[in-house]
Amino acid sequence: MSDLKSGSNLEKVLKAGHFAFTGECGPPMGCNVEHLKEKMQFLKGNVDAVNVTDNQTAVARMASIAASAIMIQEGLEPNFQMVCRDSNRLGMTSNILGAYALGVRNMLCLSGDHQKFGNHPQAKNVYDIDSMQLIALVKKMRDEGKFMNDEDIDENPKMFIGAACNPFADPYEFRVHRLANKVNSGADFIQTQCIYNMDKFRDFMKKAVDMGLTEKCYILAGVTPMKSAPMANYMAKRVPGIEVPEDLIKRLKGVEKKDQAEEGIKFALEQVEEFKEMEGIAGVHMMAIEWEHRMPEISERAGVLPRPVV
């Protein structure tokens, strides 16, 4: 297995050709470790790796690196998220080394939501480097054993490098090129933004396949089950870069309120089934936001259990 880049479980699952299934777990807005561990237990055995978000939506939470380390103690594999909003190249570099030292083997390199959306809108943002440069930084540290400044690292952090891709942001024609740029910068795997507009995503994937991108990296399709029609409405209108087709909102509204969550899960499961067959898709990233307790059922019904042991 010496040709593995990091040796992470996620990398091994993908490399072995299995359909990967990843989850997500948001660290607490406080130090409630017990609750965090409870949430993690719902994911254990039901996914290959779990994204540990980094102050998502610019809301201050327990550090991603700390929650990732706790996750490892709990016997799960984290996908350590890092945003460019909150620290400069020094802070990022030291956290990459620190995360690796704590056993982290996957990381997801992100720009980060603007702080305007969060609970500290008064904050100064950093953006010393952007997500493309962060990908290149982690790759350089791993493959060349060098810091950004070209000085040698005495032991390389061997990370499986992830990046995000939002096919639904504008301008649409450019999105596949930006994906190519991330792949060329060093992304080993991609997790997409939540997909609801399947027509557009099919077109996007066709372009990615035609450009040969799916031969160079693994693409995991992002799925977030809708919990209700109001949630779908909110995401359609308020969340930048997310496209929710009117048909889906109608479908959720078409059932009684108490059944809307089930309808949302059904739609998500239909998506998973299609992704299993879609050319170029290597897995699904299931972002059941604050719905960790539903993950055992979702994984079961998605037909992805048991998770492969590699």
């Binding site: 460019c84 909003r85 720009s111 980060g112 939501d113 603007h114 305007k116 959306f117 943002n125 953006y127 952007d130 997500s131 493309m132 440069q133 995000a164 891709c165 939002n166 942001a169 504008d170 301008p171 450019f174 930006r178 740029n181 933004q193 930048p240 870069g241």
Partner: peptide, 19 residues
């Protein structure tokens, strides 16, 4: 808004910034 050198980020919608 993020001074990024490789945009647009995922928050760009219909020519406008996410903020």
């Amino acid at each position: 808004s993020k001074s990024i050198m490789h945009g647009p980020c995922g928050g760009s919608a219909q020519g406008m910034c996410e903020i």
